[in-house]
Simulated assay, not measured.
Amino acid sequence: MRTTAERVEYMMQTLKIKEQTEFGTLCGASKSVVYQWLTGRIKSIDAKYAFKLEDNTRFSARWIMLGEGKIKK
C-alpha cells in the first residue's frame, strides 16, 4: 500500500469500521480529516494521529505515516 488513502482504507476494513467518524475517534481526527485522507486531499498522516492510532490499535505508526516497516507492532 503506497498511499495514505490505501492505508486508511485497509485499517478501516481490518478494524471493521465503516464510519469515518469512528475511525477519527481512534486517532483524534475529525470526520473531515479522515475524508481528506481517503480522497487523497491530505497526502500524509501527521505523527500525532499516527501515534494515537498506534496506541489504540495494533498498527505501527511508522507504517501508518510512511507505508514502511511492519504493518502491525
Score class of each variant (00 low, 15 high):
residue 17 I to V: 08
residue 67 G to S: 05
residue 48 K to G: 12
residue 10 Y to T: 05
residue 35 Y to T: 15
residue 73 K to V: 07
residue 33 V to K: 14
residue 14 T to V: 12
residue 64 I to M: 08
residue 12 M to T: 01
residue 25 T to F: 02
residue 17 I to S: 02
residue 50 A to I: 05
residue 26 L to S: 04
residue 30 S to R: 11
residue 12 M to R: 11
residue 27 C to F: 01
residue 63 W to F: 09
residue 64 I to W: 13
residue 49 Y to H: 15
residue 55 D to V: 03
residue 11 M to I: 02
residue 36 Q to K: 14
residue 28 G to S: 04
residue 11 M to Q: 09
residue 32 S to K: 12
residue 68 E to R: 09
residue 10 Y to M: 04
residue 13 Q to V: 08
residue 5 A to K: 02
residue 41 R to E: 07
residue 57 T to E: 03
residue 2 R to I: 10
residue 22 E to K: 14
residue 15 L to H: 01
residue 2 R to D: 10
residue 53 L to R: 00
residue 20 Q to R: 10
residue 67 G to W: 09
residue 20 Q to S: 03
residue 27 C to G: 08
residue 22 E to S: 12
residue 54 E to P: 05
residue 13 Q to W: 04
residue 68 E to T: 09
residue 73 K to M: 07
residue 59 F to I: 07
residue 70 K to R: 14
residue 39 T to W: 08
residue 61 A to F: 05
residue 12 M to H: 12
residue 8 V to R: 03
residue 7 R to Q: 04
residue 56 N to F: 08
residue 12 M to E: 02
residue 43 K to C: 06
residue 51 F to D: 08
residue 37 W to D: 00
residue 13 Q to D: 09
residue 24 G to S: 04
residue 58 R to V: 14
residue 33 V to I: 13
residue 6 E to P: 01
residue 62 R to D: 15
residue 1 M to S: 13
residue 13 Q to S: 04
residue 73 K to C: 02
residue 41 R to L: 11
residue 14 T to F: 12
residue 31 K to M: 12
residue 8 V to K: 06
residue 67 G to Q: 06
residue 50 A to F: 00
residue 9 E to K: 13
residue 29 A to G: 03
residue 70 K to C: 05
residue 52 K to Q: 15
residue 34 V to D: 09
residue 39 T to H: 13
residue 50 A to R: 02
residue 34 V to C: 08
residue 22 E to M: 13
residue 9 E to W: 10
residue 35 Y to Q: 12
residue 37 W to F: 14
residue 19 E to M: 09
residue 1 M to G: 14
residue 44 S to R: 15
residue 5 A to L: 05
residue 3 T to V: 06
residue 26 L to Q: 02
residue 15 L to T: 08
residue 18 K to V: 11
residue 38 L to T: 10
residue 41 R to G: 06
residue 18 K to M: 13
residue 9 E to Y: 11
residue 20 Q to V: 00
residue 33 V to E: 11
residue 34 V to N: 07
residue 52 K to R: 15
residue 21 T to I: 00
residue 5 A to M: 01
residue 59 F to C: 12
